[in-house]
Structures are given as C-alpha cells and as structure tokens.
Amino acid sequence: MEKILEVNSLTKFYKNGRGIKDISFDIYKGDIFGFLGPNGAGKTTVMKSITGLNMFKSGKVKILGFNIKTQFEKALEKVGAIIETADAYEYMSAYNNLKIASRFYSDIKKSDIDKMLDVVELKEFKNEKVSKFSLGMKQRLALALALLSKPELVILDEPTNGLDIEGTVQMRNLIIKLADNKQTTFFISSHLVHEIEIICNKVAIIYKGELINSGEKVTNIKKRYASLEDFYMSEINKRRHQSNE
C-alpha cells in the first residue's frame, strides 16, 4: 500500500523542556489514523512539526514521498489541515470564506465551492455570516476549507473538541464518509478514546512526548481487549509505573 505520511525519529523540545522525542510512525492511503493521548502529551506539537508550523530539532518527515524540509511546497501541496483552531472570517459568509481561499489554487471553480459546502452540509447556510454559526457549523466550514484543494492527506487536531452530541456525530460521519468514498487519508488527534475507536482503523498513543504504541489496527487491539479504552489505560498505566520505578 502507498505510504502517505512517514515520520521518523521526530524530536522537538521547547525552552521549558517539554516537547516530543523520537516519534516514528507511517500512515497509508485510505487510513483514518488516530493519534491518542492526554492533553499536553505532544499531539499538537507533532502535527505542527509535520505541517511546517514548528521547526523540529531532528528526524525526518515525508509526505507523499517529499521531504518536508527540502521539498516543502511539494510535500504540503496535497495536505489540508485544521490545527488548534478553526479559523474563518466571521464577518463574511461561508461561501465568501471559501471563495477567498480558492484564490490560492488555480483549478477551483465556483461549482467546486458549492459542492464542498454541500459535502459538509452547509449549502443552505452559504450566504449567512460565520459569526451566526454554531461551533459545529464553524468546524464543518473549517473542514471545507481544509478539503477545498482536494488534498490526499487531511490533518485534524481534536476535530470534535467542544462540540455537542449532534455536532460530534455530524463531524464523525463526515470523516468516515470522505474516507470511504474518496480514499482521503486522515490523521486525527484526540484525547477522547471513544471517538477514536469509532472513527479510526489504526491508532498510535503518545504520552509525555513519547510514542508508546505506534499504528496498531483497532481491530487487532479489540481481539485482546474489551475496548480501546481498556487498551489505552493499560498502556498509560504501564508507562506511569515505569516512570515511577
């Protein structure tokens, strides 16, 4: 299978001593890859390093075979991302937000904008100001912005964080539908074990900046454990025990 993302020995430390150490994993075409860990574990740092928002100390990142450091534009050409916040111009309509974003690409038509709004279930609200949107609607608009360039890899940092039950289900179903129908590859971080279990086919666990499980299939985990949560807590408790010895 085609490798979409290769992360090898990724290391990044901040001045306060926190960061990530020796992170390695691969993501293949069509995966919905879950990146699971407590708040502050290093999930966002990894995602920022992969997308060039952070300069990392050592390691190597390749996207679709292109090195993020030496072939930056090529590496990011087929990547869409929402990291930390879902940014949009709140005083503008959903349609105009996508229209402005489309100027960065040479092959986006007006029909593509309408189609994308339809995909994220916002077409009937296309002319409303974003300031009037619920958090779930803003998250779906951000997803539309990330998908506008027709990326092969979509990176989502805590995409259901803060959403109510309805918003969570809508976002979850959108991700699953896009992965099934278009073979879009997703890399999704979360601290919510249940969400990762429902959405993802593979999972990696990060704890205190280190990877403690890398890319195992959720189906294989559930052959050994009653749920992904049992597996997650088992791995976390092992690491806690080791650090206390």
Rank of each mutant, 00 (worst) to 15 (best):
N39L: 01
K69C: 06
Y28P: 00
E73A: 13
A88W: 05
K21F: 00
K57R: 15
K69L: 15
N39P: 11
K69S: 07
K29A: 11
E84Y: 09
T44Y: 08
I50A: 06
V46Q: 00
V46S: 08
I68L: 14
Q71L: 08
Q71H: 12
T51L: 14
L36D: 00
Q71M: 10
M55C: 09
L64D: 14
I27T: 02
D31G: 10
L64H: 04
V79R: 01
T70H: 03
A81S: 14
N39C: 04
M55A: 09
L64I: 15
F25H: 03
K62D: 13
S24T: 15
S24P: 08
T45S: 13
G30P: 01
A75P: 00
V46W: 03
L36E: 00
K62P: 12
A86I: 02
A86F: 04
A75L: 13
I68T: 09
D26L: 13
K78A: 05
V46F: 07
L64P: 00
G40T: 11
Y89G: 03
G42A: 04
A81G: 03
G42C: 08
Y28K: 02
F72W: 08
P38T: 08
Q71G: 03
D87G: 12
A75S: 14
I63C: 03
G42H: 10
I23M: 06
N16E: 11
K29Y: 05
T70L: 05
D22L: 01
K48T: 03
G19D: 03
N54Y: 13
V79Y: 06
I50R: 00
Q71I: 03
T85V: 09
F13E: 10
A81V: 09
M55Y: 13
K62I: 12
G19E: 02
E73C: 08
G19Q: 01
T70E: 12
A75C: 13
A41I: 05
A41C: 08
T70S: 12
N39H: 15
A81T: 12
I83N: 05
T45Y: 06
G80V: 02
K15T: 13
E90A: 10
T70I: 05
F56K: 00
F72P: 01
K57D: 15
F25P: 01
F66G: 01
D87V: 11
K78H: 10
F56C: 10
P38S: 13
I23W: 04
N67G: 06
K57L: 02
A81M: 14
A75Y: 07
G80R: 15
T44N: 06
V61T: 07
K57F: 02
L36C: 08
G42N: 12
K21A: 00
F35W: 07
K78P: 01
D31F: 09
I63L: 04
G19L: 10
K15V: 15
Y14V: 15
L76H: 10
G19M: 09
G42F: 09
I50V: 15
I20H: 10
G34Y: 07
L53V: 02
D87Q: 11
G65I: 10
G30M: 03
F35C: 09
G37W: 07
F35T: 06
A86P: 12
G17L: 05
F25R: 01
